[in-house]
């Protein structure tokens, strides 16, 4: 399966939602994908923000995108710029940060900027799933 392919999209079963996973390390993307697919989500992977936008637009799935899970350390961008980059493209799609940096100040800033959750690697599968479910639930409540 290619990294950009959307698994389960056309499998006939009902999807829990489409999640974009952005991390420069392919194995990180792979484990997130595995964890989420088991709970019925469809996953699109990309190694950085730019490629993520490309991938989503290519698949004409832009309107279907339900959630972004992203690292905040990218080759060309860092921290809050990454969040703003997505917000500009998809203002109403919730974002979960998944990072190796346990930085209290950064997490506070991120949450103030509307990030749904700030998860520090290594995160337990159950915690990741719970965070994803919560982000999507809040999104529905807000009526996006």
């Amino acid at each position: 399966m290619s990294e950009s392919q959307t698994a389960g999209m056309f499998s006939g079963r009902e999807s829990e939602g489409l999640v974009l996973v952005v991390d420069d390390e392919s194995d990180v993307r792979k484990v997130v994908r595995m964890t989420l697919e088991k709970s019925g989500y469809d996953v699109v992977e990309a190694e950085d923000g730019e490629k993520a936008i490309e991938e989503i637009k290519k698949g004409e799935n832009s309107i279907l995108l339900n959630l972004i899970i992203t690292d905040i350390r990218m080759p060309n961008m860092n921290g809050i710029d990454v969040i703003n980059y997505y917000k500009k493209e998809w203002p109403s799609v919730p974002i979960i940060v998944l990072t190796g940096f346990p930085d209290v100040e950064m997490s506070t800033t991120m949450l103030q900027h509307g990030v749904s959750d700030y998860l520090v690697k290594p995160v337990e599968s159950e915690k990741l799933r719970a965070s994803v479910a919560k982000a999507l639930e809040q999104r529905e409540v807000r009526g996006f």
Binding site: E25, D27, V31, R73, G100, P122, S125
Partner: peptide
Amino acid sequence: ASGIAHDINNPLYILLAFAENILE
């Protein structure tokens, strides 16, 4: 030190998440 911790956390996540997956 926080740079090292970050660099350890990434592979550690891969290791732990795959292990959890095997359990499942």
